[in-house]
């Protein structure tokens, strides 16, 4: 059974531009993706919005393999900020999972 964290989306959101919930799951992004990514963006965005944190963490490689080429975004009929949303997900991994944001919590900042 999936564990849901209703606050997870707030920890991923960098600012008001994060709009994963605007996705209407039409599939155009998947159709045009040059890498043919299966889970990003639609499925992983849905996990974020639903608070399925463990599912997002399981797809780390997918989140970091996106080319950010924006071909999906310019074709998205719902105006989802796909590349910025993916960057927000990477920021989440960097700060909360990898602990590498150069801030007080990052050991590297104390060197």
């Amino acid at each position: 059974m999936a564990v849901l964290d209703p606050h997870f989306v707030d920890s991923v959101r960098l600012d008001d531009s994060f709009n994963a919930s605007a996705c209407m799951n039409c599939g155009i992004c998947t159709a045009v993706c040059p890498l043919g990514l299966e889970h990003l963006p639609r499925e992983i965005f849905a996990y974020v919005v639903l608070g399925m944190k463990e599912e997002v963490l399981r797809h780390q490689d997918t989140v970091f393999s996106c080319l950010l080429c924006k071909l999906c975004e310019v074709n998205c009929p719902a105006g989802v900020h796909i590349t910025e949303n993916v960057r927000a997900l990477r920021h989440y991994f960097d700060s909360e999972v990898f602990q590498i944001q150069g801030g007080p919590g990052d050991a590297a900042s104390h060197v």
């Binding site: 970091f64 950010l68 960057r87 990477r90 920021h91 989440y92 991994f93 590498i100 944001q101 150069g102």
Partner: peptide, 8 residues
């Protein structure tokens, strides 16, 4: 920037 390390 692409990797999302925004603070750095």
């Amino acid at each position: 920037y692409d990797l999302g390390v925004d603070e750095v």
